[in-house]
Design a protein around this nucleic acid. Structure first.
Lengths: 258, 258
DNA sequence: TGCTAAATCTCGAAC
DNA sequence: GTTCGAGGTTTAGCA
């Protein structure tokens, strides 16, 4: 399984050797890690200058570039995916320029010493999932409808209505229809207005009594007033709680409910 | 100059050897680059799961962590500076956990194969300057006062007034005094109020006619109204234009003007 | 300490 | 293609 050699590392290469290696790696769509002493000039949406120092530079196969100092979460300089690269030797220095258009900008990195240069063919097809998404909150409410309120019974979810899709649709303990709109973060005016549109639409297709409930961790300023004006309700629900519910019920399938 | 050995690289270390090396590097406040096959779990403000794949992990001496897939500008998982680390072996896997409080969150990285492990003592004292800073804009206006308006003549800069320092102070083509406040980014209410304070102060020490001009690339919402109420003006000026002016006049010294 | 506004924001979806 | 909104946003500037 690990017989292939995905990483080739050069220690203390000459700048000439490094330039050659970078050109090859870029052309073969490999990822590159460069560690060495460098300085950086950026021109584009803004412009910046970084004086000489030892840093970590990552060039990815999609043409993105990251220049990291030995401290700090953010890269000091960078370039998003889609860059074209020019690698050259200028006297005693290795120069790598990453440019893109729209917006037109380029980062020029100059090395006078490379400590390590790794060229890598990394395989990464692993799926990334961020839990407690809006969908997770929806699933959690379907799994445990009391998260919305006692006696709530879901009828369907992602139900098509004219303006879009209702997140959850159900009946409360007194038999009234309930339209639920879910936001995983603080709900703003848009969320309230969206819910209002859904409720208005459902009103055109039924004569039953109807409630609209906005579910979110918090309401933005003034949205409670707006909800009241629109005759809608708010139910506070933390995405984290939903994630916990889902974790506890991982064995059960959502399909069981319908 | 480059006799020291700032980087030590292990190729294909066993997970045991890797764990040992990471513990030492963390305790000695070195930076670490790990390349290998791993999976990641995050719990905190949200929670996420990243399935197995080959990635680049950077641990910096300030306790920040970056997990980069072979594509994309952004790290797939990360942890800001100030983390505490737990490194251990769980069966055949190397496990690195980076945790912090406030907010309470942790990232757990599990490796079943390490291709490269570099421990680095990087020295980086280079200064970073984002050009077209507020100071650059100030210099540009002093170099070319027509950036503000035709006929403007600077008298001084960084002039002390009671509430602080006036960025630029001058006379317009009709002999009126002008107080200039510069912001390199969209100017908010604060900027307008700050300018108002300066103008009010200057009014107490002169009887000459007085204008207040806020210079910035843009105004935040509602600030134009506020300026009008305060009897102040706005002059749009892009930091980029200022940077261009400075580049063209690099040979001249600011001191020449006074 | 907490809040607000900006960022070379980036990224993705909708129009 | 452009605009709009979200992000584990992060970060810097103030109250």
């Amino acid at each position: 399984m690990f017989n292939r050699k995905p990483v080739v590392t050069l220690e203390n290469p000459t700048v000439e050797k490094a330039a050659e290696s970078i050109k090859e790696a870029v052309s073969k769509r490999k990822a590159i890690i460069l560690v060495g002493n460098c300085w950086v000039d950026y021109k584009g949406r803004a412009s910046s200058k970084l004086e000489s120092g030892e840093r970590i530079v990552i060039i990815k196969k999609d043409g993105s570039v990251l220049i990291h100092r030995p401290f700090g979460y953010e890269p000091v300089n960078w370039q998003p995916a889609g860059c074209l690269f020019q690698t050259s030797i200028r006297g005693e220095t290795l120069q790598v320029r990453a440019s893109r258009k729209k917006p037109s900008e380029s980062v020029k990195i100059s090395f006078d010493k490379v400590f390590v240069l790794s060229s890598m063919n990394l395989i990464d097809r692993g799926e990334f999932s961020l839990h407690a998404s809006e969908l997770d909150m929806q699933k959690a409410i379907l799994l445990d409808p009391s998260l919305l309120e006692e006696g709530f019974k879901p009828i369907s979810y992602e139900k098509k209505v004219e303006p879009g899709f209702v997140d959850v649709y159900g009946v409360d303990r007194e038999g009234r229809l309930v339209v639920v709109e879910i936001k995983r973060r603080t709900a703003g005016r848009n969320a309230a207005l969206q819910l209002a549109k859904y409720v208005d639409f459902v009103k055109t297709v039924t004569r039953r009594e109807l409630r609209g409930v906005l579910v979110a961790p918090h309401l933005a300023k003034g949205v409670q007033t707006l909800l009241t004006c629109l005759g809608l309700e708010f139910k506070a629900l933390e995405p984290k709680n939903c994630a916990d519910i889902l974790r506890k019920s991982e064995t059960r399938k959502l399909g069981d409910f319908f």
